[in-house]
Amino acid sequence: MIFYGGLLGGILHSVVAHLEDFEILYLSPAEFSGQRKPISKWLRSAAIESISIGSHPKCEIYVKWLDPVVKSKHAKLSFSKNTVFVEPDEGEVMVNGAIINSKTALRDKDKIQLGMNSISIMQLIAKEAGELTGTAQKNLAGRKNITIPATGRPGIMVNSGKPSIISKIKINPKKAK
């Protein structure tokens, strides 16, 4: 029975993970970074209009860690025409380092930060990235790419050369660890 249970669990998860199209990868805070959360079912579900991101326990993407910047219903993720969209709800949202004010299309590996001074950064993992619509392409056109330094903490450097506000904050590396 132990063998059966172990095999059942292992194989079931392998198949399910293989068939998962959209996931959210936590990048920051460090304690949660690297965790992948499946969202395909909610995105495709007719019963759920949008996935809410926030500090409220009923949010689908529940911010479990302490982040004073994150609102109870901070942002929304939705899905239409094979594209995932992010939209600010009660809080500020940054996509790849740029603040967005309206519904914005996301591509594979796009980074979502829940506010300028937020430590909550996540990335969309889209295994089957679809063709983007005209509006989506337009939304994506003005984006700047961001890089997260290997040193940890949410120090974000916008590729234009100008560091963002967060990167200017000096953090004691010992405390950050």
Binding site: L7, L8, I11, L12, P38, W42
Partner: peptide, 19 residues
């Protein structure tokens, strides 16, 4: 849960046969 119906059924079937 977060597992899609199709994935769960296929996964369970394969897992059941192998196990």
């Amino acid at each position: 849960s977060t597992i899609e119906l199709k994935s769960g059924l296929i996964g369970g079937l394969i897992a059941g046969i192998v196990a």
